[in-house]
Design a protein around this nucleic acid. Structure first.
Length: 567
DNA sequence: GCCGTTTTCGGCCCGACTGTTTTCAGTCG
């Protein structure tokens, strides 16, 4: 099995961590982390790029040395440089680095002074009061480490974006009530539209920072405040979500929002660009010497370094700065571009008429009702449901109703649908809902086989992930996307906050292959159409434009595209 | 280790908070 990008990235990160513990040049450490991030963000598999003879040094942050190491890892699965490091520094130390409060310097001291290499040894030493004797350690840090080690046993959590939106929205609204306060907004990875968030970053502009900090600490959902200063504070909410609050004056809003939205690598790029213009960019503004020259709006920050506004979803240093400089930023798809939803559960909680009306209210012109179909469902039951959809047409308030099936893809990938059913369908969605433990090869074969079925239209949520708990299963998306292109079918981006599947990088992959993505809700009740906004955000992270999305098409154009698969 | 429309060498974003520091290093975002 070919080496996957994630494996390469993990090795590069580990090299970076071990180098940091050895007190290597911090910029060298960063170079490895940057390369790992670049590799994770690729929309193609490295083995594929190498096979096609692509020059890896064209990738950002990858020079001759790292290109060589990456080729070595892809070719052999291992890296001699890492093995050499392992002979000097045990790999377990990476685990220690993940303990909050422990960075490379302290981990180095733990290992070289106390021979501590595992979290168990760390806990034991902390209990015995041996940590506080080390230089740079003290009693408080020892306590903090003990707490962190205990908390870590339950695992560091990530949160789905609907939970983040709910918690963060309430907190922001609450902070906005402080007199003298202007904006209160969730920034950070949430604003960039990441599929899950590890913490919430809330930015507040105010003329009374002390009052805002006070109110934050007094919030009834705050379980404990972990850090608190004049302009920045951190706390953990009762639901376990960590919140970082940052308070700035009104005139700094744009600069602070840019800084607090990130991502980190993007910020570094923009600030470095600023240096070249003789500017210093921080969260308070853009400065030439002591004079503030920009910063009230994000657009003014970008403008100061000669760039147009880059949408938050693109700020990952995945080429957006180069694209902006060349005036080649995509015009990202927007919520209002959607004309339809091609995956609406026909036997959900609300009845069909109510669903159609809810969709219309949402601004949609057409929806496809999809009937869940297991391998053994009797054809006559499906036919009766199709009849029902036909019957409510006049009551659908002008909404165009399409008829579809969501067929469960069995382990062997075989979809045997009766021809009398197929003949009445506008579209056929295939989805796998179980057996995700198959090997990558078998999982891929399963989906490819299903896509070969007659009338197959849309492959839904191919990764089968359930955020934030279950990761996507192992499947060769390169082959899936290419197969979709060859067969003229489509890939669904399911908008439910627990799915958001396709992943962003796979949206980019689809775009590169010219495969249209259908942004669907999988709605069971009228209010679920609201989830489409999450799908849009995810699509934007994948650089998708209106024309890259199937269901931005007017109904007539959609029909022509669907007919290609149904004939 | 990467990178360059001033540079192939000498730079590499910037600031807040904590704890242990008697003036600042380490960590974090």
């Amino acid at each position: 099995m070919p080496v996957q990008n994630e494996h390469v990235a993990e090795i590069l990160d580990e090299i970076a961590d071990l180098l940091a513990i050895q007190d290597a040049n911090p910029f060298r450490v960063r170079a490895y982390h940057n390369a790992a991030r670049t590799v994770r963000g690729l929309s193609r598999e490295l083995h594929d790029l190498i096979a096609r003879g692509k020059d890896l040094t064209d990738l950002p942050g990858i020079g001759d040395d790292l290109a060589g190491k990456i080729r070595e890892i892809v070719g052999t699965g291992a890296c001699r440089a890492l093995e050499k490091l392992h002979r000097q520094v045990p790999h377990e130390l990476e685990e220690l680095l993940a303990v909050p409060g422990l960075g490379p310097k302290r981990v180095k001291a733990l290992f070289y002074d106390l021979r501590i290499r595992t979290t168990q040894q760390l806990e034991k030493a902390a209990r015995a009061g041996r940590l506080r004797k080390l230089p740079g350690f003290g009693q408080k840090l020892e306590q903090r480490i003990l707490q962190a080690v205990a908390a870590r046993q339950s695992g560091t959590r990530r949160f789905s974006i609907d939970v983040a939106e709910e918690s963060g929205g309430k907190l922001a609204a609450y902070l906005g009530l402080v007199p003298g306060t202007g904006k209160a907004i969730i920034a950070g990875s949430f604003r960039r539209g990441r599929e899950t968030v590890g913490d919430l970053d809330i930015l507040v502009t105010t003329s009374r920072p002390a009052a805002v900090m006070e109110r934050f600490a007094a919030y009834d959902q705050v379980a404990r405040v972990t850090s608190r200063g004049a302009t920045r504070a951190s706390a953990v909410l009762r639901n376990g979500l960590q919140v970082d609050l940052r308070v700035v004056p009104k005139q700094s809003f744009g600069a602070a929002l840019h800084y607090f939205t990130g991502g980190k690598a993007h910020n570094i790029r923009v600030r470095t660009l600023g240096q070249k213009f003789g500017l210093k960019i921080n969260e308070y503004g853009v400065f030439r010497g002591a004079r503030r020259v920009a910063g009230a709006t994000e657009a003014s920050v970008f403008k100061s370094v000669g760039l147009p506004l880059i949408p938050p979803e693109l700020r990952e240093d995945r080429g957006e700065i180069e694209a902006a400089r060349a005036h080649r930023l995509p015009r990202l798809v927007e919520e209002g571009d959607l004309r339809g939803d091609l995956h609406v559960i026909a036997n959900g909680r609300d009845d069909l008429v109510a669903m159609a009306i809810a969709a219309k209210r949402r601004g949609l012109r057409y929806i496809a009702f999809t009937i869940r179909q297991g391998p053994d469902a009797p054809a006559d039951a499906v036919l009766r449901q199709l009849d029902r959809i036909d019957q409510i047409r006049e009551r659908a308030d002008g909404m165009v109703l399409l008829k579809g099936i969501e067929a469960e893809i069995p382990e062997d990938g075989r979809l045997d649908l009766p021809t009398e059913v197929l003949a009445r369908l506008d579209l056929l969605i295939g989805a796998a809902h179980g057996q995700f433990e198959l090997t990558r090869a078998r999982q891929t074969a399963r989906l490819l086989r299903a896509m070969d079925s007659p009338c197959f239209t849309i492959l839904a949520h191919p990764g089968g992930r359930l955020l934030p708990e279950r990761d996507a299963c192992s499947v060769d998306m390169e082959r899936i996307v290419r197969a979709a292109r060859v067969r003229g079918c489509f890939l669904e981006l399911n908008s439910q906050p627990q799915r958001l599947d396709l992943a962003d990088v796979h949206c980019q992959m689809a775009k590169a292959e010219g495969v249209l993505v259908s942004i669907n809700s999988g709605a069971r009740q009228g209010e679920d159409f609201r989830d489409l906004r999450f799908g849009i955000t995810q699509a934007r992270r994948g650089w998708l434009e209106k024309d890259d999305v199937l269901n931005t098409r007017p109904h007539a154009a959609l029909k022509r595209l669907l007919r290609r698969t149904m004939d």
